[in-house]
Simulated scan of single mutants.
Amino acid sequence: MAVTSISRLCLVYGILLPTFGTLLSSFVTANPLQKRVVPERSGFKKVWWEDFTHKDGVSHNWIYDLGTSYPGQVANWGTGEIQTYTKDTNNIRIDNGVLSIIPRKKPSSGRPTWTSARIESNTKNQWACVDGKKMIVEASIKLGSASEAQSKGIWPAFWMLGSVFRDKGYKGWPEVGEWDIMESLNGMRQTWGLVHCGMYDGQIPIRGPCNEPNGKGSYTKGVGRGIWNTFGIEIDRSSKYWKTEKITWLINGVRRHSLSGSDINNATAWDFLVHKKFFILLNVAVGGGFPDGVEGYKTPYLGTIDGEKVGMQVDWVAVYQQN
């Protein structure tokens, strides 16, 4: 969910394609009949988790992001997305321990207006990988089952921002660091895993250690929709040398792609990106630079539907630190 003032179509090109084996292994056929327990991980301690069963609901661990921007910050959440975020149960609710984020549209004399929801973990819930150890952040997510034709401009995301953002706001982006653990666009059977870091001056072409404003990373094809997938990121500081530390994206426990400190090749950017605390965000945006860029036209279309078939469900979210 990066800040950008230009099309991000170039993300489709110039990044590593997954191997054929990776493509095949990304398909999942199992669909749980009941809510699952947040799993344990061998060699790791589960230091925080959210299973959406607390009596206080969403407000127990999360802050609602409301409107079209943070107060006094960049409009349209910095991405050009067009929806207004609410905490209305039409847009966000918990049913049987599963969180649903649901974009809705309202007809108007011009283009329809849209609402949706976005939450971020509160200030008590932010984490950094311990020096010499590994950290994994995962979530069990079901993406909407609607077709691509019905989903143009719908942009679900599971991502994290450096906690310094809460002090600096967008003036600190992308220096504060951003991990896009899972971004889904336009109903595609494909998800992106990217990072943002360093500096960006608002100019073209892409710049800096993280190729801003597009970010650096890759994507995985063949990701099932309308079924549960586990999306995660592993921060590996076990080498104790920044250039050989790694960020790895996981889908259903399978490693998809990685970036190392040497890939970023900027010690200051890597320090913000890997050594400092981050907080979690979950949202479904509508429109914006990323879906527009991939589609090649401004989204959403008049044929884009609203409702649960283009929403996102979250069964659980967890943070693991290596023992």
Score class of each variant (00 low, 15 high):
Arg41Gln: 11
Arg41Met: 14
Arg41Trp: 05
Ser42Ala: 11
Ser42Arg: 12
Ser42Asn: 12
Ser42Phe: 07
Ser42Trp: 06
Ser42Thr: 14
Ser42Tyr: 10
Ser42His: 11
Gly43His: 00
Gly43Thr: 00
Phe44Asp: 01
Phe44Leu: 02
Phe44Ser: 06
Phe44Val: 05
Phe44Cys: 03
Phe44Trp: 04
Phe44Glu: 00
Phe44Gly: 07
Lys45Val: 13
Lys45Glu: 11
Lys45Gly: 10
Lys45His: 15
Lys46Ser: 08
Lys46Trp: 07
Lys46Gly: 12
Lys46Asp: 00
Val47Thr: 15
Val47Cys: 10
Val47Asp: 02
Val47Gln: 08
Trp48Tyr: 15
Trp48Ala: 06
Trp48Leu: 05
Trp49Val: 09
Glu50Ile: 03
Glu50Trp: 09
Glu50Gly: 08
Glu50Arg: 06
Asp51Pro: 02
Asp51Trp: 01
Asp51Thr: 01
Asp51Gly: 05
Phe52Leu: 05
Phe52Met: 02
Thr53Asn: 13
Thr53Met: 04
Thr53Asp: 09
His54Glu: 13
His54Tyr: 12
Lys55Cys: 04
Asp56Ala: 14
Asp56Leu: 14
Asp56Cys: 13
Gly57Arg: 08
Gly57Val: 07
Gly57Gln: 02
Gly57Pro: 03
Gly57Ala: 04
Val58Ser: 03
Val58Asp: 00
Val58Pro: 03
Val58His: 02
Val58Asn: 01
Ser59Tyr: 06
Ser59Phe: 09
Ser59Leu: 12
Ser59Ala: 15
His60Phe: 15
His60Leu: 07
His60Pro: 05
Asn61Gln: 10
Asn61Thr: 09
Asn61Ala: 14
Asn61Met: 02
Asn61Pro: 11
Trp62Arg: 02
Trp62Asn: 01
Trp62Ser: 01
Trp62Gln: 01
Ile63Gly: 09
Ile63Arg: 13
Ile63Tyr: 13
Ile63Asn: 15
Ile63Leu: 12
Tyr64Pro: 11
Tyr64Glu: 02
Tyr64Thr: 10
Tyr64Leu: 09
Tyr64Lys: 07
Asp65Cys: 14
Leu66Val: 03
Leu66His: 08
Leu66Ser: 08
Leu66Lys: 06
Leu66Pro: 05
Leu66Tyr: 09
Gly67Phe: 11
Gly67Val: 09
Gly67Thr: 07
Thr68Ser: 07
Thr68Phe: 01
Thr68Gln: 08
Thr68Asn: 09
Ser69Met: 07
Ser69Ile: 03
Ser69Pro: 04
Ser69Gln: 14
Tyr70Ala: 10
Tyr70Ile: 06
Tyr70Val: 03
Tyr70Trp: 15
Pro71Thr: 11
Pro71Arg: 09
Gly72Phe: 03
Gly72Val: 03
Gly72Tyr: 04
Gly72Leu: 01
Gly72Met: 01
Gln73Lys: 10
Gln73Leu: 13
Gln73Tyr: 08
Gln73Gly: 14
Gln73Asn: 14
Val74Arg: 09
Val74Lys: 11
Val74Leu: 14
Val74Trp: 06
Ala75Leu: 11
Ala75His: 08
Ala75Ile: 11
Asn76Cys: 03
Asn76Lys: 12
Asn76Gly: 00
Asn76Gln: 13
Asn76Ala: 12
Asn76Ser: 14
Trp77Ala: 05
Trp77Ile: 06
Gly78Pro: 03
Gly78Ile: 02
Gly78His: 01
Thr79Ile: 05
Thr79Arg: 12
Thr79Leu: 08
Gly80Met: 00
